[in-house]
Simulated scan of single mutants.
Amino acid sequence: MVERKVGQMSLADSLVRKSRSSILDEVGAVVDWAPLRSLLGKRGGDGAGNSSYPAEVLLRCLLAGIWHNLSDPALEAAIADRLSFRRFVGLSLHDRTPDHTTLWRFRQELAKDGLIEKIFEEINRQFEAKHLILKQGTLVDASLIPARARPPRKASKEREETPPKPSVDPDAKWGKKGKKSVYGYKIHTGVDAGHTIIRRIHMTDASVTDTKPADRLFCGDEKAVYGDQAYYTHRRHARLKKTGIKDRLMHRANKHHALTARQKQLNKLIAKVRAEVERPYAVLKEQYGLRRMRFFNYTRNKVQVVLACCAYNLRRVAGILSSPRERHACG
């Protein structure tokens, strides 16, 4: 299977491309795509066979689908119909549009060998090189996302011999936050306090406590770490102090010690700073369709979550650079 050549522009393409730019054009310009192409590699060999789309084209397709909260069939239709989509993904007017099964298969390819995580890291590496990640502090938080599948059904009380019906998604688990129980997954993030760019992303089933994977969310180069009471432990406090990172995790009372007036005041100040961590979750859930998981297992859902974080960071940086003051500050 050979990699098909796309994006060869005709006179008609050149005339169409003179139309005004869209937000997709702005987002596409915030990163250098060459290192991403190198990471993705070629999808086809040199032999005969059906041609395959370049990986960069398909990655751009999936990102466009996330920004517009589209299913794969709807994304296929949008790419075929909208000039801004074709321009962003790199297809000319006469190129064939990738169908939804091609997009589905490529999403599975991103799960292999940690490829999607490498893409996320490369995008952030470029933002760090441009001084868009300020490292003044990391905001840590977690959020429950319900599974697409229904939870397993309990055995009937009337018929005890009837076994419980398992869920279609065997990787999801029950989790609880406050009084709310959710069958699904949990997203854990470490967010740069300056521009709310997501620097660390970790996904677990919903049963995992917020504090268990917390150390994976710290980057080691930030000046402080901010989080709610769920993250505070004496051991973590000592570890942060040893590495020279300020502990701004909210204190919590226990049955032996109530919070002092100073700790209560400090918690209020921390809460004001860490509140910004809600911005990425609001975008992921309200705009990118992550109010509920899209697929029926951990691996496919993880790819979608990390892709959504890539999409968020790209869109966030495009917004930052559109501000004259921020553009001047970043040189």
Rank of each mutant, 00 (worst) to 15 (best):
L266C: 05
G137R: 00
N254H: 10
L139I: 14
V191G: 03
S92K: 06
P146W: 01
R17I: 06
L132R: 02
Y231T: 15
H188Q: 14
R199N: 15
M293F: 02
L284N: 00
R87V: 10
S143A: 03
V283W: 01
G244H: 11
L115E: 05
K255H: 07
L290W: 01
R4E: 14
R148W: 01
D13Y: 12
K165F: 11
E26Q: 11
I23D: 11
I198N: 00
A318R: 04
K18D: 08
R4Y: 11
L115W: 04
P151Q: 12
G227K: 03
T189Q: 07
D169R: 02
S52H: 09
A238V: 08
R105Y: 05
K154N: 07
V30N: 05
H202D: 15
E158F: 14
L83T: 14
E109I: 06
R159T: 07
N297V: 04
G47I: 08
Q287I: 00
R236G: 12
W67E: 09
I197H: 02
L240Q: 06
T162N: 03
Y298M: 07
L134N: 06
V2R: 11
P213Y: 10
H100P: 01
I245Q: 10
L132P: 01
E109C: 13
L15Q: 09
H131M: 04
S143T: 09
W174A: 09
E26M: 14
Q136E: 07
E326W: 10
P152D: 04
H328A: 15
L139H: 01
R82W: 09
G47A: 09
I320V: 14
L144H: 00
E326Y: 05
K186S: 01
G137M: 02
S21G: 12
C61F: 12
E278P: 03
S22P: 15
D171S: 07
K212I: 13
A230C: 12
A78S: 11
R17Q: 05
R200T: 03
S322I: 07
D210K: 02
I187C: 01
V16L: 08
